[in-house]
């Protein structure tokens, strides 16, 4: 099994980060590697919701929201159609508040079962590319949002 975990400190309150993640169909707004994201049944999150994601490098994924916990600020996502030959692919995004700064930490985990000869490629694509790009993209998106004057 491939297991990856990446995380980033964000200069935004945990509740604000969580609200961004709840926009399940809004992934392309902040993920620089995502070209399009189309949610079935609207942009609002509910367990069972699905989205079709295409990336700028030409891959596509169908993802389903498998679990959402407001208490734990945690989303779990199952990939129904993956660009890699995997039998199972699961992601979790969890937001933690940072008491000493008022900011947050976002952790993005991924697990997948698949052929061993694909493991290295998937680690590279997700662990060194897609997930860090998403984390840094969200950090930039939040910074831009919070720096925008409200009277503009």
């Amino acid at each position: 099994m491939i297991r990856l975990s990446r995380s980033i400190a964000l200069a935004a309150p945990a509740d604000q980060v969580w609200q961004e993640l709840l926009g399940f169909g809004d992934l392309a707004l902040w993920h620089p590697a995502v070209d399009t994201c189309r949610a079935a049944g609207g942009q609002h999150v509910s367990v069972g919701a699905t989205r079709h994601v295409t990336t700028r490098d030409g891959l596509s994924m169908d993802e389903e929201l498998a679990a959402a916990s407001v208490r734990d600020h945690r989303l779990e996502i199952l990939t129904r159609t993956a660009p890699f030959p995997v039998s199972l692919m699961w992601q979790a995004l969890t937001v933690f508040g940072v008491s000493t700064t008022g900011g947050a930490v976002l952790r993005w985990e991924m697990r997948a079962d698949g052929p061993p000869d694909w493991a290295g490629r998937m680690r590279d694509w997700f662990g060194d590319g897609y997930i860090p790009a998403g984390l840094n993209g969200l950090a930039g998106h939040l910074a831009a949002t919070n720096n925008t004057p409200i009277n503009n």
Partner: peptide, 10 residues
Amino acid sequence: IPVTEGGGSF
């Protein structure tokens, strides 16, 4: 939690 992007630990 290791803060992989930026360093340090939560």
